[in-house]
């Protein structure tokens, strides 16, 4: 499935969607603009998780921590220091990536479920600190009224700012996926033992993937603060980690855009079902069960398979890759 050059057939719909998204805020109400911005942030977060889960085969079970670290770093730097916004904006994702390196450095020593558990406990440590260090983080209350510069503090300002960085990050991810590093990661996912045997340093690749993914999660966290002007410990709680995991599944693990779709569906569901009933997690649960029973590859996965079957009817075997072995 490697394409080293951008295929115009792939590029067209993306460009169309982008143009649409640029003009959409002029015609839709402000509330919908805001929801779209929430979807962008969540989509970036889910995409960053999918870098290690779908494409790396790692049990990254506590990804939200890095999102939260990015958000907290950005908010705290803006509130407690006099650094200009751009410096804070640039530094925060690196802090998230540093946290990713630190946690990942321990985690890659273990495999599968143990990796997940170690990550959950290390992540929970960071959550506990954010939750309990009242003097710095205001604990459960979180930090509100983060001073975001005027030009992006309005909903539409934030919308374009977030959209710009989402597109930037997606391009970067696309390049990474199709780089030698990206394909190596997929090879490691599919057969770590063989990769190790042909001389690939599996652990170092996995650690690098974690650092890159956590960097993007940090960007998502920063964008969250730009949109919401606040941070709270739930951003680092493991429930959110599971939620974004679900988004990746919902959209499809092994597709590029799947997590975006998953994030959009989840956010839309929460928003619009939430208007009618407070029991939206019940609906999500039922939806999830239906998905497990009828659509295990996710919506995008099914779509792509149908597309592929039609295109390569005659020869190519269906490339159904399996997740963690």
């Amino acid at each position: 499935m490697q394409k080293s050059t951008l295929n115009p057939n792939v590029l067209w719909p993306w460009t169309l969607i982008l143009v649409l998204l640029i003009f959409l805020p002029f015609i839709i109400p402000r509330f919908y603009t805001y929801i779209l911005a929430v979807i962008f942030v969540t989509a970036l977060l889910a995409m960053s998780l999918n870098m290690v889960v779908g494409h790396g085969g790692l049990f990254q079970f506590h990804h939200a921590v890095f999102y939260g670290v990015g958000a907290y770093a950005f908010a705290l730097m803006l509130m407690k220091t006099a650094m200009p916004m751009w410096v804070c904006f640039t530094v925060s994702p690196f802090i998230a990536a540093a946290a990713g390196f630190l946690i990942g450095w321990f985690c890659v020593r273990l495999a599968n479920l143990y990796f997940a558990m170690l990550q959950i406990s290390l992540g929970s440590l960071i959550w506990a600190i954010a939750f309990r260090w009242y003097d710095l983080t205001h604990g459960d209350d979180g930090l509100h009224g983060v001073p975001i510069p005027d030009w992006i503090s309005s909903t539409s300002g934030a919308y374009y700012f977030i959209l710009f960085f989402l597109v930037l990050c997606l391009i970067a991810m696309y390049i990474i996926y199709h780089s030698p590093f990206g394909t190596t990661m997929q090879a490691i996912r599919d057969n770590p033992a063989r990769c190790s045997a042909v001389g690939i340093n599996v652990r170092r690749h996995q650690l690098t993937a974690i650092v890159i993914a956590t960097f993007f999660a940090g960007v998502a966290g920063v964008l969250f603060v730009v949109l919401e002007h606040s941070v709270f410990p739930d951003l680092l709680f493991w429930v959110l980690s599971l939620e974004i995991f679900i988004m990746c599944l919902l959209g499809g693990w092994f597709t590029f855009a799947g997590p975006i779709l998953g994030a959009a569906v989840t956010v839309a569901l929460r928003t619009f079902v939430g208007i009618y009933t407070e029991y939206w997690t019940l609906i999500l649960g039922i939806l999830l069960i239906l998905l497990i029973f009828f659509l295990p590859e996710g919506v995008m996965g099914l779509f792509q398979r149908k597309l592929r079957n039609r295109r390569y009817e005659e020869g190519a075997p269906g490339k159904r890759r399996h997740a963690q072995g």
């Binding site: 599971l242 679900i246 599944l249 997690t281 019940l282 999500l284 649960g285 999830l288 069960i289 497990i292």
Partner: peptide, 14 residues
């Protein structure tokens, strides 16, 4: 695993 998660969502709301 995901089934048990979905179950927990449903039971929590119930």
């Amino acid at each position: 695993l995901l089934f048990t998660f979905a179950l927990s969502l449903i039971l929590g709301d119930l």
